[in-house]
């Protein structure tokens, strides 16, 4: 299945985000070998040069490292993955608060609503 990519943002950024998400959510395990650029490009149905650019970006951030001959691997530094997970979570939460504030809710109101929903789910 080709990846669902937005049409108005640079593709390589979206690929970076997508692979980050796959790493955090455990689709790719720490230390696991990534498919080749060509294969990934084929799976995602994107240009191999763009995929290459995205992987270089991931390498730069340290999330992915490359062995000269054997290819690219996910970092074994689980702490780094956890950190990324935490910062992404923060990002999502602040996005959520932002949109709720736009709807006119106060932070405390939002919290009580969340608690209510969680309770409802538990019952």
């Amino acid at each position: 299945m080709p990846w669902n990519l937005d049409s108005d943002r640079p593709i390589f950024i979206q690929i970076v985000e997508r692979i980050q998400l796959d790493i955090i959510s455990g689709i790719y395990h720490p230390g696991e070998k990534l498919p080749s650029v060509r294969e990934l490009a084929g799976i995602a149905a994107v240009n191999p040069n763009t995929m290459q650019k995205a992987l270089s970006e991931l390498e730069r951030s340290g999330l992915v490292y490359s062995h000269r001959t054997s290819g690219r691997f996910i970092t074994e530094d689980t702490e780094m993955i956890e950190n990324l997970k935490a910062s992404l979570a923060e990002e999502k939460i602040s996005e959520f608060f932002e949109s709720m504030t736009k709807l006119g809710f106060q932070k405390t109101e939002i919290l009580t609503m969340i608690e209510k929903i969680i309770k409802g789910e538990q019952e």
Partner: peptide
Amino acid sequence: TVEEIREQNGKSVDA
């Protein structure tokens, strides 16, 4: 290039 179009115009090639 496609990236140039997306970065400069903020829209897809299709658009």
